[in-house]
Simulated scan of single mutants.
Amino acid sequence: MANAKHELEISLYDGEFVGDVTLLTQICVIEGSVTPYDAESFPPLEETSRLLEMCAEKYATPPPNGDYFTVFISRKSIDDADFELLMRLDVYAHNGEATACVVSRRPEWNTERVRYQPDDSALTIVFNVLRSNVGGAPR
């Protein structure tokens, strides 16, 4: 699927993932892709950050109800039914600071803490976490 045309599917859920996504409340699903002009594709976290940036400016989503929310980042082929879960972000947002545990096929790693405003949406919070941490992410 590496050479196929693809798009990301970013699914945000309210609550802490404990192995069963049906226990979580879906906040939103974002589908799309961001490709650089005349260059290699962006790494998945950078592409996710860029896609979230575009969507955060245009669409309103609710803030998380509690301290935890979960983000699934998948890649799906436009040409066929291939669907691949790339990673999960377990986001903790409390008292104006947010961080995420990034779970993928690579070893888990935690992002640096970032500040957020009490009325920020889940989408804005995860975008801020990624924007501040994407440079240090494993590829």
Rank of each mutant, 00 (worst) to 15 (best):
Y68P: 00
E97Q: 14
A81P: 05
P64A: 06
N110P: 01
L51R: 02
R113M: 15
P63D: 04
D38I: 12
A39W: 00
A100G: 07
S49I: 02
T48C: 06
T70P: 02
M54T: 14
D80C: 08
S41L: 13
E53Y: 13
N110C: 05
E112H: 09
Y116C: 09
K76G: 01
L52N: 05
P62M: 06
Y116F: 14
C55S: 09
P107I: 09
R115I: 08
D90T: 11
Y68K: 05
P44A: 01
G66S: 07
C55L: 00
Y92H: 09
S41A: 15
P43W: 09
I73W: 00
N95Q: 10
N95P: 00
T61K: 02
E53H: 08
E84G: 01
S49T: 07
R106I: 11
E97F: 13
S74F: 03
A39C: 08
F83A: 04
D67I: 05
A60R: 13
P62Y: 00
E112F: 03
V114S: 05
A100W: 07
E108S: 15
D38P: 02
A93P: 01
L89H: 02
T111Y: 01
K76C: 10
W109E: 04
D90H: 12
E53N: 14
R50E: 12
L89A: 05
N95Y: 12
G96M: 04
S77Y: 04
P43T: 13
S74Q: 00
P63N: 07
L86C: 01
L86T: 01
D38E: 12
S74N: 08
T111P: 04
C101S: 13
A100P: 06
P43N: 06
V102N: 06
A39F: 02
I78P: 10
L85N: 07
I73K: 04
E84P: 01
N65S: 15
K58E: 12
L52W: 07
C101M: 12
D90R: 10
S104M: 04
R105C: 11
H94I: 14
P64M: 01
A81R: 07
A39S: 06
T111M: 01
A93C: 09
I73T: 09
E40G: 13
R115G: 07
P62V: 03
D80M: 02
P63S: 14
Y116N: 07
S77W: 03
P44L: 02
S74P: 02
L45M: 05
N65M: 13
D67G: 09
V102M: 00
P107D: 11
R106E: 09
Y68L: 06
S77M: 02
M54I: 15
G96H: 09
Y59M: 14
V103K: 05
H94C: 14
R75P: 03
P118V: 07
Y92A: 11
G96W: 10
E53C: 08
N110V: 08
P62Q: 04
R113C: 15
S74I: 03
N65H: 15
D79P: 00
N65L: 13
Y59N: 14
I78E: 14
R113N: 15
